[in-house]
Design a protein around this nucleic acid. Structure first.
Lengths: 201, 201
DNA sequence: GGTATTTCTTAAGATACCTCATTGGCTGAT
DNA sequence: ATCAGCCAATGAGGTATCTTAAGAAATACC
């Protein structure tokens, strides 16, 4: 059995959390999703390129980030196993992206191309439904992050990130976490020191 | 012609920006969406209540906000004409909301109840598609807001808010804008002063 | 049209967070 | 084993933003 086969089975299993797929729909996944291995520090999207694939992470971990005019990276999203990572704006508009998507670990992904996803939507409306629900959930999570950004201190945001994403935060260098929280690594270091001193006085 | 009738026509017209509705689908809107007028400062959701309606703003303007432990309000979203406002987390989970949705102006809205929206999704899959696309667009906007929050100064965020939402920012007191940006009204006042001094030296 | 309420502005002192420079530990490649 | 290249930690000094308080201006409501 090819590894591609196993990966698609993982994706089929993932959809069991939503409206599970019937056999025709499952066949479409085998047909349209392509497996790809990505090395640590490999890019699946770079600024200036059009984001042509919708990507499901089978294993490993990615970050999506923007680079500002001073060359600093700002992490918008992480994605580990059983999560999606795509620059939706570029993907649907077919215009050049402002973002980078880079592997933080050696990773395996499944990708579907824009026209294939559109035809999936058209021919099997369950995908419209499932992706509607998936993105609604991601929208809710993002809205909570916005609320935290406008209402909480860096320390509160850090603790809440640790609680909400333990499986990711474990695997990240603190500099990546700092970039996600919108603070400097130095300040995160101070926060960690303060926290540990408060718990071990 | 009732005003409800006109409001639903506006909603039908709104859907022309996506996949336009056929006559059966239009009938469903007349059947399931209820018009409601809301006074300035009227609430359509309060913390502790379950969010039972998906709301389309026909005219007027709303804010959705959380109240922190010190009693301060933090604006998560505004919604004016032809926009949606709902606490998705509470709506789909049918659990009590943490949020408030309050009219900033006298407003007219159209609301659909949870079970009716679900049956719309089931019986007319175009609604799955249209709401998928609508929320994808809102997701992209929210992601840009997160990026700004973690990478830009308050002044940059303010200017970008003015550019992106002129039709809303015009109608809001600055204190509401400050709450949306995650800064104090006093500091926003300073930002505005600095900006005007730089343009009229 | 007048009063009550909300909103805007200003300023001084406090705090959160940043920049820059330095150090030391760890890791991966030779 | 050694060296180069991250990465974490720290401290000093700077900037962004907050708090509090007060008066002035604008706006809502009767």
């Amino acid at each position: 059995m090819s590894t591609e086969n196993t990966s698609v089975k993982q994706l089929i299993n993932y959809f069991k959390n939503y409206f599970p797929l019937n056999s025709k729909e499952r066949d479409e996944l085998f047909l349209h999703f392509t497996e790809r291995k990505v090395k640590r520090r490999g890019f699946i999207l770079q600024q200036g390129d059009v984001c042509r694939h919708f990507t499901f992470v089978v294993s490993g971990c990615f970050k999506m980030y923007a680079v500002d005019k001073n060359g600093k990276e700002h992490n918008i999203q992480f994605a580990a196993e059983n999560d999606w990572i795509t620059d939706l704006a570029s993907f649907y508009s077919e215009k050049p992206s402002q973002l980078y998507i880079e592997a933080i670990e050696p990773s395996v992904i499944l990708q579907i191309k824009y026209p294939d996803l559109i035809s999936l939507y058209i021919n099997h409306h369950k995908f419209d439904r499932n992706f509607r629900i998936i993105i609604e959930q991601k929208f809710i999570a993002l809205q909570n992050r916005v609320l935290q950004n406008i209402s909480s201190t860096a320390e509160e945001r850090y603790q809440s990130f640790l609680e909400q994403y333990p499986h990711i935060s474990n695997r990240l260098p603190n500099t990546q976490v700092a970039s996600y929280l919108g603070i400097t690594p130095e300040f995160l270091s101070k926060i960690r020191k303060d926290l540990s001193q408060r718990s071990n006085p």
